[in-house]
Every structure is written in structure tokens, then in C-alpha cells.
Design a protein around this nucleic acid. Structure first.
Lengths: 106, 106
DNA sequence: TATAAACGCAACTATTCAGTTGCGCAAATT
DNA sequence: AATTTGCGCAACTGAATAGTTGCGTTTATA
């Protein structure tokens, strides 16, 4: 059961839930009202988001407020940034090849 | 069969493939050598990446070189950015509430 | 021309996953 | 005290998915 951030945001419903929670903390019922799915279905999505720390719980009486945790999103950010860095470094590699060719010639 | 960018990068193997291709274009066999999986298994991953335009093909004789397409990655970037914007705007909403309370008082 | 290499494609299988249903518990409400 | 509400948890089911195996096609090589 791999439950990392990438897996979590792969589902469009979960992305929508994060969008809601980014605006304000909400209870499972309140969240479910925004979707056609049942409460339990949404609850499962929230659970997955909670597993990988994308949302935090805050219990108040019998209600549980879920909060968005922007911190965890950085993992995705970081990966994309590394990818971008790799992509840009490939020019440097080409430069090295050209440099080697030049050296062989001389 | 939803094949969007988020779904594509959910798999760690596919993320690794993108990491390789970001450095340099490669053939399926060359890519498969970096993993324990079979050629066909890797080929399927590549196909998924191709479906959502994360990689481009370039046929040369009987070999097919796959290139990383950084453009498509922007979709993820954009979503994260919108999420961040929503997260930051929640303070503004709080401000509005406080402002309304103030107005009611006066 | 015969053989090997580099692929894609399709069928099959074992596993995983999403959603439903039903239950139980604790906190409110009446 | 009895009922309702908000919620999590577990079992079940149908659909999707990942990986394997086998085959066909095209391009190189001997």
C-alpha cells in the first residue's frame, strides 16, 4: 500500500477536496456535500489524504475538522524542480561532449 | 481510463523514467536496463507517459527515442500554484469577517 | 536471403482500488 | 433517558491496473 503524496493527488476528487480545505477547514459531512459521492466514499479519500499528511485533523466534540497542510506539497514541488534542473543540465552535458571533441582534434 | 499528468506521475517507476529522459533521450531498451522490470512492463509505462504528452517519440530506423516534454509538467505546477493561492487567500477571508464585525459594531 | 534485434500490440492473470452497505461508538439534542 | 447526529471502521463487490507471455512487423546485420 503505497500512500505517498503523488499517489494522493492523482485522484481528481482528492485534488478538489484539497482545493476546498485550502480555503477553509471543514468536516467530512461539509466536504461530502460538495460532491455526488457518498459520505463514506469522501471519508475514504480524506483518510488517504490524512495518511500522507496532506491534511491534519482537529477534533471538536463529535466533529472533526480537516485542515490543509501546505507543507507536504513541497515534496511535489521539489521533485518537479529537480526534474527541471536535470532537463536544463543536459545542455551542459552537450557542452562537455563538444569540448571533448575539440580536445581530441587539437 | 483517465490518463492525465497527475495519474502518470503517481507511479515511482514512471517518475524515475522521466528523471532519466530529462537528462537525455533514450530508447525503451536503454530505459529498461535501468530497472528490474521487463522491457514490456517499462514499455507500458512509457506508453502511459506518451498518452498524456509527458514524453515525445522520435523514430530513427528501428529505434524509437523518447524525449522528455517539460511543457506538460506545467499543469502540475499550475495546480499547486492555485492551491497555494487559495491557501493564502484564506487570511483575506478572515480579514473580511473581522471587517464585517467591525462594521456591525459601529 | 536468413537471422537477429528493437519494438508495439493483444490476451491473460493476480492484485489493487473505489465505492457501497452495514455496523458501532461517542457526542449532542430532545 | 431516548433519540439523533457525526463519524470511523470493516466486509464485500465490481472495475481498473501492473506485469507476464506470446506474437507480428520492420529494420538492421551476417
Amino acid at each position: 500500500m503505497r500512500r505517498d503524496v503523488f499517489q494522493a493527488i492523482a485522484d481528481p476528487t482528492r485534488r478538489a477536496i484539497l482545493g476546498l480545505l485550502a480555503l477553509q477547514a471543514m468536516t467530512p459531512n461539509a466536504i461530502a456535500e460538495h460532491f455526488d459521492s457518498s459520505r463514506q466514499a469522501i471519508s475514504k479519500h480524506i483518510q488517504i489524504l490524512a495518511e500522507c499528511k496532506l491534511v491534519k485533523q482537529e477534533q471538536t466534540g463529535r466533529e472533526i475538522y480537516y485542515h490543509f497542510n501546505p507543507q507536504k506539497m513541497k515534496e511535489v514541488d521539489t521533485w518537479i524542480e529537480q526534474l527541471r534542473a536535470a532537463w536544463e543540465s543536459r545542455f551542459t552535458q552537450l557542452d562537455d561532449v563538444l569540448k571533448n571533441l575539440k580536445n581530441k582534434k587539437s
